[in-house]
Amino acid sequence: MCKKNEMRKKYISFRDSMSSDSLLEKSSILAQRLNELDCVKNAETLMCYVSFGSEVYTHDIINNWLSQGKQVCVPRVVKTKGKSLEAVKISSLQELEPGTYGVLEPATGQNNTVSPDLIDVVIVPGCAFDLHRNRMGYGAGYYDRFLKLISDNCLKVGVAFDFQVMDEIPCDELDIPMDIIITEDKII
């Protein structure tokens, strides 16, 4: 666990050192690659994290999908059920407010939750990924618990900057691997 925490800090530090112009440019290239995938084009219900800090910027991805009339869900932390996420359908990013850890999420009163097994594609953040499509999250296990609830047909897509992908990262039986990882330079 200590090694994972050190790696998290290292990769978040790398990300934080990027200029905002570079972050937005690489995020835009990555978004274009993502939206060219047939599984994304054909998806009816998509879930995407709302980017925070130096994460791959997802606001444009979400707005693009909303403008196409797709059903878009974003995660909301459920405090009454331990460390869990639920998918909440939104019609605009303007509906969101700072929630857990300061990340934008739907207000607690919004009851547009979508069953995880109805989601076609879920976009997942991470600190680091590897060539085996393993993901290292932020250490709280929110996404790993949520991803156990989605259908086998749901595509799990990790998005990251190229420098966040390593040959191999430490993982255990609780870590859920991605189906695809997309960076500004490649698709794994």
Rank of each mutant, 00 (worst) to 15 (best):
Leu149Ser: 07
Val72Phe: 00
Pro106Met: 04
Gly139Leu: 06
Lys70Ala: 03
Val114Thr: 09
Arg133Ile: 14
Leu147Ala: 04
Gly137Ser: 08
Asp175Gln: 15
Thr80His: 06
Ile12His: 08
Cys154Ala: 12
Asn153Arg: 12
Asn64Pro: 01
Val121Met: 02
Gly126Leu: 04
Glu184Trp: 12
His132Cys: 12
Asn64Tyr: 07
Thr108Tyr: 08
Val159Tyr: 04
Lys81Thr: 07
Phe129Leu: 07
Ile169His: 04
Tyr101Ser: 09
Asp130Val: 03
Ser51Pro: 06
Tyr143Ser: 03
Val77His: 01
Asp185Phe: 13
Ile61Gly: 00
Gln164Gly: 08
Pro106Ile: 02
Gln71Phe: 03
Tyr49Leu: 05
Asp120Trp: 03
Leu46Trp: 00
Ser115His: 10
Val165Thr: 11
Ile119Ala: 02
Asp130Phe: 02
Ile29Asp: 00
Lys10Pro: 05
Asn153Asp: 14
Pro75Asn: 05
Tyr142Thr: 06
Ser115Glu: 13
Phe14Thr: 05
Met18Cys: 12
Leu46His: 02
Cys39Ala: 11
Asp175Gly: 14
Gly141Gln: 06
Lys4Val: 13
Glu168His: 15
Cys48Thr: 06
Asp38Gly: 08
Gly137Cys: 08
Cys48Pro: 01
Asn153Thr: 14
Gly141Pro: 07
His59Asp: 09
Asn111Pro: 09
Asp172Ala: 15
Glu184Gln: 15
Val88Ile: 10
Ala87Val: 05
Arg15Asn: 13
Glu25Val: 09
His132Ile: 11
Phe14Leu: 14
Glu105Ile: 03
Ile176Gly: 01
Glu55Cys: 04
Lys81Gly: 02
Val159Gly: 01
Glu25Ala: 10
Gly141His: 01
Asp130Tyr: 02
Asp167Tyr: 13
Lys26Trp: 04
Val103Lys: 00
Asn42Val: 05
Ala140Gly: 12
Val165Arg: 01
Leu96His: 02
Ile123Ser: 00
Ile187His: 15
Ala31Glu: 07
Phe129Met: 10
Ile176Cys: 10
Phe163Ile: 11
Met7Arg: 12
Val121Lys: 00
Gly102Tyr: 04
Leu174Gln: 15
Gly137Met: 04
Met166Glu: 15
Phe14Pro: 00
Asp60Met: 04
His59Val: 04
Ser115Asn: 13
Leu96Val: 06
Pro75Arg: 01
His132Glu: 13
Val157Phe: 09
Leu174Val: 14
Ile176Ser: 03
Val56Ile: 12
Tyr101Ala: 09
Pro98Gln: 04
Arg135Thr: 09
Met18Gly: 09
Phe52Ile: 06
Ser20Arg: 15
Ile176Gln: 07
Cys48Tyr: 00
Asn134Pro: 08
Leu104Arg: 07
Leu93Phe: 02
Thr108Glu: 13
Ser22Asp: 15
Ile29Thr: 10
Gly53Lys: 11
Asp60Val: 06
Lys41Pro: 02
Leu37Arg: 03
Ser54Gly: 08
Met7Cys: 12
Met18Gln: 12
Asn35His: 10
Arg15Ser: 14
Arg133Ser: 12
Ala160His: 02
Met178His: 12
Gly102Ala: 10
Ile62Cys: 01
Ile61Gln: 00
Leu96Pro: 02
Asn64Trp: 05
Glu173Gln: 15
Gln68Gly: 05
Glu44Ala: 08
Ile123Lys: 00
Tyr57Thr: 04
Ile181Ser: 10
Ser151Phe: 06
Ser91Asn: 10
Val56Cys: 03
Val157Ile: 15
Glu36Gly: 06
Tyr101Arg: 10
Asp38Ala: 11
Ile176Glu: 09
Ser13Met: 13
Leu104Cys: 10
